[in-house]
């Protein structure tokens, strides 16, 4: 096999690897199952936090809100709510929703376990 053919052969392997990676990462990526909430994408986390805020607005039960937000990770609940609030502000959530998240964040910041 000549050097030219070896070069083309290696080039074709690289091209094939590129195609394979594109297929495996873009066209048919690995689908995760049985994940935990802390791996949710930021918008879903923000929406979950908003749900907690909606319920909190009615119940005024900080401990229940803390327990629910704990699903989203080991960070302090106030930090989780604050991140959701920041996300909501940056992404044009309705003022009423931002207010809900703000109320929740404030309540969590002054909450003493």
């Amino acid at each position: 096999m000549t050097a030219k053919r070896w070069f083309i052969f290696i080039l074709s392997i690289l091209a094939g690897a590129g195609l394979g990676l594109y297929y495996g990462w873009v066209i048919s990526p690995v689908e995760y199952i049985d994940t935990i909430p802390s791996t949710l994408r930021a918008d879903y986390k923000a929406d979950y936090s908003l749900m907690v805020a909606e319920v909190f607005e009615s119940e005024k039960d900080v401990e229940a809100a803390v327990r629910r937000l704990a699903l989203l990770g080991s960070e302090p609940p106030a930090a989780i709510a604050s991140a959701a609030l920041e996300f909501a502000r940056q992404n044009g959530y309705a003022p009423a929703d931002i207010q809900l998240l703000q109320d929740l964040t404030l309540a969590l910041q002054v909450w003493q376990p």
């Binding site: 083309i8 052969f9 290696i10 080039l11 074709s12 392997i13 690289l14 091209a15 094939g16 690897a17 590129g18 195609l19 394979g20 990676l21 594109y22 297929y23 495996g24 990462w25 990526p29 690995v30």
Partner: peptide, 13 residues
């Protein structure tokens, strides 16, 4: 080479 590369690529991905 292409087939080999595709296999390697998918395997990695």
């Amino acid at each position: 080479g292409l087939l080999l590369g595709i296999g390697i690529g998918i395997g990695i991905a």
